[in-house]
Design a protein around this nucleic acid. Structure first.
Lengths: 90, 90
DNA sequence: ACATCGAATAGATAATTATCTAAATAAAAA
DNA sequence: TTTTTATTTAGATAATTATCTATTCGATGT
């Protein structure tokens, strides 16, 4: 269920925006929240979906929880597109 | 709404499978349906979503409606991923 | 120990989605 | 012209999703 989960995760614009934010640096949940108009709990929910899809990883640092991008899953997704054009995918 | 619509369309496994079928050749709605266990109306619904997202085009030929892949939108999607890695997107 | 701060979880709700059956349309065949 | 075939559309339902507020959890600071 990995690929399907990742595609579903990417199909939401807020979640794509979160991933874009994380390209530059890792950020705490609060910093991420600050970029969106929605309630903190909502962003937290999006983060948990990204985490389940393994698109992000998180680590606790004292009071904060930092999220960072997991590029390797993004690469897998891109590989699917490349395979699509090559006719490769199973 | 083009990009978002396309991503949403791609987030469903049946629809991705339809696109893969269409890589080889254009196919009638009925032929496409034959590859899935779901009701014809359901597949027709998926086709209409793909069409709205401009991922496929269709043309009537007598009794049949043929669907074909629109590669250029797939290319746009792949470009998004490439841009993601380059840090380029908007 | 208690209050505070950052973040997640619980529970509820409204919107969206995938699916079904049945009915409508449109072209072809009889 | 009536019937059959290919496909879509309508209407209904169940499942999933995005969102909210309120509560809980965990760590820090007083």
């Amino acid at each position: 269920m990995g690929f399907q989960e990742s595609m579903k995760a990417l199909s939401d614009p807020t979640r794509r925006e979160i991933l874009k934010l994380l390209r530059k640096q890792k950020m705490s949940a609060g910093e991420i929240c600050a970029h969106f108009p929605t309630a903190g709990a909502t962003v937290s929910h999006h983060l948990s979906i990204l985490k389940q899809a393994d698109l992000v990883r998180c680590e606790k640092e004292g009071k904060f929880i930092y999220y960072e991008l997991n590029l390797s899953v993004m690469e897998e997704l891109m590989a699917w597109f490349q395979g699509f054009f090559k006719g490769g995918n199973q």
